[in-house]
């Protein structure tokens, strides 16, 4: 390894509720039995990983974004700011300039093009980043404030925080948001390996195909974990074979797993078979990632 950064394993899925958080938390806790590891919850709209750990809060900071602030005495009411804002986040209503922070994309256009420097950029809180520690497990999550609409800048800041603080670790696990829209792109675009978790059902297959297309657009190496294997049919397996996507593990369908999950318990600690699957998944990810140690 030339640069000292952890192997980033991102866990994603086209659809919500397929077991993303379950896999992320179990995998991270399993790794932590042997070495220090960081788990980052990038699902900033619905961070749920933290529900599975009761750790000690070691650090907290607000997340910020940059927005323009009207400096009234300097303003000549030329109207340029309103004209150049493609997001309608700056309005000129008579003798007032209104800035709508939630609509602002922090592009700096109005601020830098203002002829009288009447819209300097200032920072505004958008949420909170928290860092917990449970023995070997470091856990980082960001939570968007309610009403805040843009997840992407917060995801990017959270990744940056982890980079700055955990460069010395060997492995980072990222719990990503569901879907195929911008937040997933931001969360997975520099991952060393992406695990797509799905269910062997028609909904699962349909959403998996979308997730695969997304990861191919990003040119990320990936593998599939089939959750609740045994229900539904084999279409997901056949699809993966046809598309040459490795299946890393099949987690069996079991009511016991559903029950453990529902009480917020880690599954592998109770079911040895799952522990073996985690070991197989981890080995594969590390081998397939850059600089991975077999």
């Amino acid at each position: 390894m030339t640069n000292h950064s952890p192997v980033r394993i991102a866990i994603a899925s086209g659809k919500g509720g397929t077991g993303k958080t379950t896999l992320a938390t179990n995998l991270a806790a399993y790794i932590a039995e042997q070495e220090e590891v960081v788990l980052v919850d990038l699902d900033v709209e619905e961070p749920n990983s933290g529900l599975f750990f009761k750790g000690e809060l070691i650090y907290e900071e607000p997340n910020f974004k940059m927005i323009p602030q009207w400096d009234e005495p300097k303003c000549t009411f030329c109207g340029l700011c309103q004209k150049v804002c493609n997001f309608h986040a700056v309005l000129q209503l008579g003798p007032t300039i209104l800035v709508f922070p939630e609509l602002c994309h922090s592009c700096y256009t109005c601020s830098e093009l203002c002829p009288t420097e009447a819209l300097p950029m200032i920072s505004k809180r958008t949420g909170k980043l928290s860092n917990f520690r449970i023995n070997n497990l470091h856990f980082v999550e960001s939570r968007l404030d309610v009403g805040e609409e843009q997840a992407v800048p917060t995801i990017s800041k959270t990744k940056q925080y982890s980079n700055e603080n955990y460069a010395h670790l060997r492995i980072e696990i990222d719990d990503c948001p569901p879907g195929t829209s911008c937040p997933v792109i931001e969360a997975t675009k520099n991952a060393d390996f992406v695990i797509l978790i799905t269910e062997p059902t028609p909904f699962g297959l349909h959403d998996l195909t979308l997730a695969v297309e997304t990861m191919r657009a990003l040119k990320r190496p990936m593998g599939v974990v089939v959750n609740r294997y045994g229900i539904g049919n084999d279409d997901v397996i056949r699809y993966c074979q046809k598309e040459n996507i490795p299946i890393l593990a099949k987690i069996p369908n079991s009511r016991k797993i559903a029950e453990l999950y529902s009480s917020g318990k880690l599954i592998y600690q109770e079911i040895p078979e799952v522990k073996e699957l985690l070991s197989t998944i981890l080995d594969y990810c590390l081998k397939a990632s850059k600089g991975g140690i077999a």
């Binding site: 195929t180 911008c182 997304t214």
Partner: peptide, 8 residues
């Protein structure tokens, strides 16, 4: 159907 990487 939302396109890949589109803004939802």
């Amino acid at each position: 159907r939302l396109g890949i990487g589109a803004d939802n």
